[in-house]
Structures are given as structure tokens and as C-alpha cells.
Amino acid sequence: MTIKKKVGQLVKKHGTSDPFELARAMGIEVIYEDLGKSLGYFSSLYRTAIIHINKNLSNEKQLSTCAHELGHIILHPEINTAFLKANTYFPTTKIEQEANEFMVELLFNQGDDQVVTVKEATEKYGIPEQLLYKNF
């Protein structure tokens, strides 16, 4: 199943494309903490997914980070990318790209009334420009 279809099913099932509302509806805890230069990550404790978000980010970047980490939980629930990056030579580029695609689909391609320009998406939300052109 494509990422677009997965996002569409998720939004239809829960009636929202807001990643924070989706996390709440799915029983995923969202924690805000000082993560230094890291935007966020997800962890799992006793089969409970937790999204960790850097509390120092703007609201828009917290939103896109939550959507990205939600993408990891939906698409890669058993893969700990932070561990892979720190302790192995396993390439995580494809996994990160898929989470980014999930984020863009969730935040910008659901037909909401909200219109976000490429400039806003890159500056406010921190979305890589090349990813936007691929998905818009």
C-alpha cells in the first residue's frame, strides 16, 4: 500500500489530519523536552509508542516533527532509526525519506482549506524543498 493511501485511511478513520490529534486517538504519548539540536524521535516502552519533540522548536516545526515521527510509527514500528544511526552502518536514508513523505501527505495533501506555500513549508515547517516539489 502506498504512503498516500495509508495517510488517507488514517485521516478517514480518525477524522483529522492533525498529527497531535491522531497521536492522541491512537494512544501515542507526546512528550516535549529539551533535545538540543535534535528535532525529535520516537520510542516504544512496553508496546506503547512515545513521540519525543524538542520543546524549543516553533509550533510549526513541532507539528511537522510530530507528523514525521508518526510516519515512523505507522510505517516502521519495529525500526529504531536512532539506534541504527548510532550503532550500525545500516543506511536509514530510505526510512527517513518515507517518514518525510508521510509528513508531507498528512500536512499538505489532504485537501484541507489551509494553503501553504513552498516558502512557508521550507522556512516555517522545515520541509526540504526537493521533497515538496516531489509531492506537490
Rank of each mutant, 00 (worst) to 15 (best):
D34E: 12
D112R: 13
F136V: 11
V118P: 06
Q130M: 09
I3R: 03
E78R: 13
L106S: 02
Y125E: 06
A49E: 07
I31K: 15
A82Q: 10
G126A: 07
A49M: 05
Y133E: 07
Y32H: 14
A99M: 05
Y46S: 15
T16W: 11
E129D: 07
H76R: 03
K5F: 13
D113F: 09
L39H: 08
L22F: 00
N56K: 13
K12H: 15
E123H: 07
L70W: 00
E105A: 08
K134G: 03
E96Q: 04
P91S: 03
T16S: 15
K85D: 09
A86N: 15
S38M: 12
Y41L: 05
L106G: 03
L57T: 02
F102V: 03
T81I: 13
C66L: 07
Q130C: 13
P19R: 06
L107V: 08
D112L: 09
E33C: 07
V118Q: 05
R47N: 13
Y133N: 11
T16V: 07
H14Y: 15
T92E: 10
V116M: 03
I74D: 02
E96T: 02
E105L: 07
S43G: 15
V118A: 09
K6P: 06
G71P: 01
A82G: 14
D112N: 11
R47T: 08
I50N: 10
E78C: 13
S38Q: 11
G40M: 06
A121N: 10
P91Q: 01
K6Y: 08
T93L: 09
L70K: 02
Q130K: 15
K119H: 07
Y46F: 10
G71Y: 01
F102M: 05
G15H: 14
I28L: 00
L22W: 00
L57D: 00
L10N: 04
F42G: 06
T122M: 13
L63R: 10
N80C: 05
K124L: 14
Y89D: 11
T48A: 11
I73H: 02
V104P: 05
H68Y: 09
L75H: 01
A23S: 07
F20M: 11
L106H: 01
T117F: 04
P91T: 03
K119P: 02
I74T: 00
G8Q: 15
L84Y: 08
G8L: 08
A99H: 05
T117E: 04
N56A: 05
G40I: 08
F20D: 08
V11L: 07
T92L: 08
T81P: 07
G71D: 01
Y41E: 04
G111Y: 09
L75C: 00
G71W: 00
T122N: 15
P128V: 11
E101K: 10
L132W: 04
V30M: 09
T48L: 13
N54P: 01
I51K: 04
I51A: 06
A121L: 11
L75P: 01
K55M: 03
T122G: 12
S44D: 10
K61C: 03
A67L: 04
F90R: 15
K134D: 05
F136I: 12
T122R: 12
T65Y: 04
E60N: 09
A67K: 06
G27C: 01
E120A: 03
G36F: 04
K5V: 15
T81M: 07
Q110R: 06
